[in-house]
Design a protein around this nucleic acid. Sequence first.
DNA 1: AGCATATAGTACGAAATCGAACTAAACAAG
DNA 2: CTTGTTTAGTTCGATTTCGTACTATATGCT
Lengths: 158, 158
Amino acid sequence: MTKSNEHDGREKDAALVMFELLNEVGIIAQLSRTLMESRLDDGLTIHHFTALNHLVRLGDGKTPMDLARAFQVPKTSMSHTLAGLEKRGLIRMEPNPDDGRGKLVRLTDSGETVRNRAIQDIAPDMADIIPQFGLEDAQAALPFLRKLRVVLDKARDK
Amino acid sequence: MTKSNEHDGREKDAALVMFELLNEVGIIAQLSRTLMESRLDDGLTIHHFTALNHLVRLGDGKTPMDLARAFQVPKTSMSHTLAGLEKRGLIRMEPNPDDGRGKLVRLTDSGETVRNRAIQDIAPDMADIIPQFGLEDAQAALPFLRKLRVVLDKARDK
DNA sequence: AGCATATAGTACGAAATCGAACTAAACAAG
DNA sequence: CTTGTTTAGTTCGATTTCGTACTATATGCT
């Protein structure tokens, strides 16, 4: 039926490859999520950890909307996550001096400590995974994934 | 402090690489999730689609637990997803002849049709993404991701 | 066989997710 | 300055997610 312009068995449609790729990515995300979550548990969820991690790595003083956009979640969900972090004393909310509607998210010392401890707790698991296929493969995959993330991000608003 | 056995700036710890990698994967999964969801909507969620897709690709006659394990979700969540699919007439639940406790999930014709249509609806978006970094890169990434998924899956039960 | 333990699935309730509606402030145009 | 539009964030409610507890069957051990 379909025209076979090269080797039929190996002929792979671009959409097909992408489907498979995102399928794998979805499963990996789910697996890593549950793996990390099993290591966390001071009642901390992945969302809590991810937000803390983001603030440590890229600097605090972000607005809630910045974070919502960064993680592609609705602002109401981010509100909820931040409320949880604040209740635990891991962040503080300040009024945004540049925008009377807005707030700024500030890491507390405790927040940074908790994040660092979480990293320490999870790191052994991460390190254990690498040797199973070599650091080089993983390093090679990173730029590709970054690019894919950027492309998908742009495709977001059609 | 850390010994610099090569080029210090590029020296990357295995755990660090893995963190970054899974971070990217998580964001990509989230983006692709919302992208797909925007194309679906006959009330179908990603979970519905993913389950249908799995059954078409790998064959039906799986138990709910098979599916729960495949997607790494609690069995109660899978119950809920399957209930939704059954209510829509996209699957049927049979008793498992080999296990009196269990059930088998069967695709209906309608289920297969709906899955195929969903694929058709999403395919253009998938195809649009590929040219932005070349089919070869994507094909190269696939085996790596599969391996990572398998490794994580094994690490699951410590 | 009989009993202990493990497993498949469901019921139920608590928490999380997220859309809709709302408040308040910013911004844009006249 | 007023008016209309946009944006940040919260509140509220419907739906989803998922842990706990339960039932029923299977499996393993003696």
